[in-house]
């Protein structure tokens, strides 16, 4: 192969590469373009044929969020629900992961398998019995109720990831510490947890994203602004807040407010998200 043809082939490959990249990015982002556009379009221009690619830009749809729905309450609920679910799941999962990784007892690996496999139990299947349980406990339409079930759903994946990270903490460090007479919880606090900060951060971020995005539990267990989250509010605006139609502009504005925090999170914490999702197999 001559240098010339090699270079020409190389250029062709480059062009193909950038073309594919362009298509890829376009497809990945197109719905958001359309949503951002709708969120800025005035109501009366929204249903025009052909669609209005350059509408008069308006902030009305965002203003409507504040005026037409209890947006602030939903936002606060979303944050509290996500944070509390993260806290619950991470604490329980960390303890469990340490137990599985470090304390050798018979049957431990089968318990771990069951716990991880319980990730496969579809949440939708548990909804009717859970509704009855929460109703008996008086936890319907409370953040406590949805946090409990969401925190639980997050546990298997968290344990699965954390076990592999605990195993990577050199056990000698802990043994040295125990010989020094340090109590187990001090070992956890001063040695294991500091060594696992990146792993914990990863799990915290991933669980937060999952809880923030969860629709099912608030959809079926929340009825008022006492515990409804943003994900439910978008379905609510879609079908019920006005009896007559779907205010696409407001739906889009709501979508934008939910998407922006996630995009910021991804931009800042990409590395951690990836290492968690791939269970640390990225070097």
């Amino acid at each position: 192969m001559t240098a010339e043809s090699y270079r020409r082939r190389n250029t062709a490959v480059r062009i193909l590469l950038y073309l594919s990249l362009g298509i890829f990015v376009f497809i990945a982002l197109i719905p958001f373009y359309w949503m951002f556009l709708a969120s800025l379009t005035p109501r009366h221009q929204l249903f025009s044929i052909p669609p209005n690619y350059f509408p008069d830009v308006t902030a009305d749809n965002f203003a409507a969020l504040i005026h037409q729905i209890p947006f602030i309450a939903y936002l606060v609920n979303s944050l509290v629900f996500s944070a509390a679910s993260v806290l619950l799941s991470v604490i329980l999962s960390f303890l469990a992961a340490y137990g599985f990784a470090r304390i050798e007892v018979k049957g431990s690996s089968i318990l771990l398998l069951i716990l991880v496999l319980s990730m496969a139990l579809p949440p939708i299947v548990t909804v009717v019995p859970l509704f009855q349980i929460l109703r008996t406990l008086g936890l319907i339409d409370t953040i406590t109720g949805i946090t409990l079930v969401m925190g639980s759903v997050l546990i298997p994946f968290s344990v699965w990831v954390l076990v592999s990270f605990v195993k990577r903490v050199p056990v000698e460090m802990e043994e040295a510490a125990t010989i020094d007479g340090a109590r187990l919880f001090q070992v956890l606090w001063y040695i294991v947890i500091p060594a696992m900060v990146p792993a914990l951060a990863t799990i915290i971020i991933i669980n937060f994203i999952n809880a923030w995005n969860n629709l099912l539990f608030p959809l079926v267990f929340s009825h008022t602004e006492a515990s409804k989250t943003l994900t439910v509010s978008i379905t609510e605006v879609f079908q019920a807040r006005t009896p007559y139609g779907r205010p696409w502009g407001v739906i889009s504005a709501l979508g934008v407010t939910m998407v922006v925090p996630m995009i910021i999170l991804v931009l800042t914490a990409q590395k951690w998200i990836v290492s968690g999702l791939t269970r640390g197999s990225i070097k």
Binding site: H223, T224, A240
Partner: peptide
């Protein structure tokens, strides 16, 4: 609650 099912489940509990 706006939609009937939601209202029904709120009142049921």
């Amino acid at each position: 609650p706006g939609s009937p099912p939601e209202f029904l489940s709120q009142m049921s509990s």
